[in-house]
Design a protein around this nucleic acid. Structure first.
Length: 200
DNA sequence: CAGTCGATGTACT
DNA sequence: GTACATCGACTGG
């Protein structure tokens, strides 16, 4: 039996708290009779308030509708004409907020992930990057709005992460509100979309 | 290594 | 038109 989903209450907290707390959790995806799993090692928070880079900053629209749903579902959007990105929706109905999954450590179903990704040369190219995570886990428009209580896709507790393992940095690939340190990484993970900044 | 650039759909000015 | 929460192929050092 696969691990049980995190409770809905996990998602109904301030988005930055959820973002940090997502590190070390596991993402599970059922594909027919097989199950894929990965450990979350890199995320970015987005919020309707004070965050011009957020899709929710300018209010509800058909695209960002799911960001305003009650926390505990998946917001999937299409970008750059060919890629999908997946987000964990947070907070109450009516608040536009979500956490982008940027990198995972593959744990289960690696052969299937390799097929879905076109057999990349380096292991980190399997799930290092938000669009790569979606491709490796077969996530696309069809999963937009999916509830995270399974059986299609869900999160499980995984194992605890100490605060000292977490680093907050600026987000990747955005212009506005770039000063917000809302990217959270497991600093020692080899599975990040890019290496942790050097210590000083 | 770093930097550049094309692919290609959708949202928004 | 222009930008876009990206990726992969290619260039040059």
């Amino acid at each position: 039996m696969p691990p049980a989903p995190l409770p809905e209450s996990f998602y109904l907290r301030p988005t930055l708290d959820v973002a940090r707390d997502l590190l070390g959790r596991r993402l599970h995806r059922r594909l027919g009779r097989s199950i894929l799993a990965g450990r979350i090692v890199e995320v970015e928070a987005y919020h309707q308030d004070r965050d011009e880079a957020s899709h929710a900053f300018r209010g509800r629209s058909p695209r960002n509708e799911v960001m305003f749903h009650r926390g505990g579902c998946l917001y999937v959007y299409f970008t750059y004409g060919m890629h999908f990105c997946m987000n964990i929706v947070t907070e109450d109905e009516g608040i536009g907020a979500a956490v982008l999954i940027r990198a995972l450590e593959p744990l289960q179903g690696l052969p299937a992930m390799r097929r879905l990704r076109g057999d990349p040369a380096s292991p980190v190219l399997l799930t290092g990057g938000p669009a790569r995570c979606c491709q490796a886990f077969a996530v696309n428009r069809a999963q937009n709005g999916a509830l995270l209580q399974g059986p299609e896709i869900w999160l499980s507790p995984g194992e605890p992460v100490d605060d000292t393992e977490i680093l907050a940095t600026q987000r990747i690939g955005i212009r506005s509100s770039r000063e917000l340190p809302w990217r959270f990484i497991l600093r020692a993970s080899p599975w990040l979309s890019r290496p942790a900044p050097r210590l000083r």
